[in-house]
C-alpha cells in the first residue's frame, strides 16, 4: 500500500517510460502494451532506490523542455561561431563564472547545457562557481563576457523551472 501511495507523483514519468518502451519495441502489439506498464513501473522502483530524487521535487519539467528547445538554437548559433574560429584562428581559455541557480539538479542541467553548446566545456562546479573552458579568438579575447552571456541566456528558462513549482 505504501509503495503505491509513494508512486502517485510518478504518473507522468511512468507514462513517458511506457511510451519509450513502446517506441523501442517498434510496434503497438498486445505484448508491448502489457509489458510497457510493468517494465516502466520496475524502472521507477529502481530509480527511487538508487537516485537522489529529492533534488528533482522542486523542478518544473515542462519549463525544462522549453529550456532544451531554446538550447537547440544556441547550439546552432555557437556552431557557426566555432566554424569561424576553425577557419581563422582560435585558442583555448579558462574562465570562472557564478551561477544564480539554487537547485543542485538545475545547476547540473546548466553545466550540461554549456557542454552541449559548441565552444565551451565546463571543467568544474564548486558551489555556485563554474570553471569553464572556452574557445576564443586570440585577437578578441572576451572569455568571461562570452561565457557570462551564455550562462545568463541559459539560466533564464532554468530559473523559471526552479521558481514556478
Amino acid at each position: 500500500m505504501h509503495i503505491f501511495q509513494a508512486r502517485k507523483n510518478d504518473i507522468p514519468a511512468w507514462i513517458v517510460l511506457m511510451l519509450v518502451w513502446i517506441i523501442l519495441m517498434g510496434e503497438l502489439s498486445l505484448y508491448a502494451l502489457i509489458s510497457a506498464p510493468i517494465v516502466s513501473f520496475g524502472c521507477i522502483l529502481i530509480l527511487h532506490k538508487f537516485l537522489p530524487t529529492a533534488y528533482i521535487q522542486n523542478v518544473n519539467f515542462l519549463k525544462l523542455i522549453f529550456h532544451y528547445i531554446t538550447l537547440v538554437g544556441k547550439i546552432y548559433l555557437n556552431g557557426f561561431y566555432v566554424i569561424k574560429i576553425i577557419l581563422t584562428k582560435g585558442q583555448a581559455d579558462i574562465t570562472e563564472v557564478d551561477t544564480n541557480l539554487k537547485n543542485p539538479f538545475l545547476r547540473a542541467v546548466l553545466i550540461h547545457s554549456i557542454t552541449l553548446t559548441p565552444g565551451s566545456i565546463p571543467l568544474a562546479l564548486e558551489g555556485k562557481k563554474m570553471t569553464v573552458l572556452n574557445l576564443a579568438n586570440p585577437n578578441d579575447l572576451h572569455s568571461f563576457e562570452d561565457i557570462n552571456k551564455l550562462r545568463q541566456g541559459l539560466e533564464k528558462a532554468l530559473i523559471k523551472a526552479e521558481q514556478e513549482t
Partner: peptide, 29 residues
C-alpha cells in the same frame, strides 16, 4: 558539412583543449 569543418579543425590545431572543444562540436551540431 558541420562534421567536415570539425574534422578540419581537429587536424588544424595541435593543442589538446582546442581539439576537444572542436570535437565536441561534431558531437552536438
Amino acid at each position: 558539412i558541420f562534421m567536415l569543418f570539425g574534422v578540419i579543425g581537429i587536424f588544424r590545431y595541435q593543442n589538446f583543449f582546442v581539439r576537444i572543444l572542436i570535437a565536441s562540436k561534431i558531437d552536438t551540431v
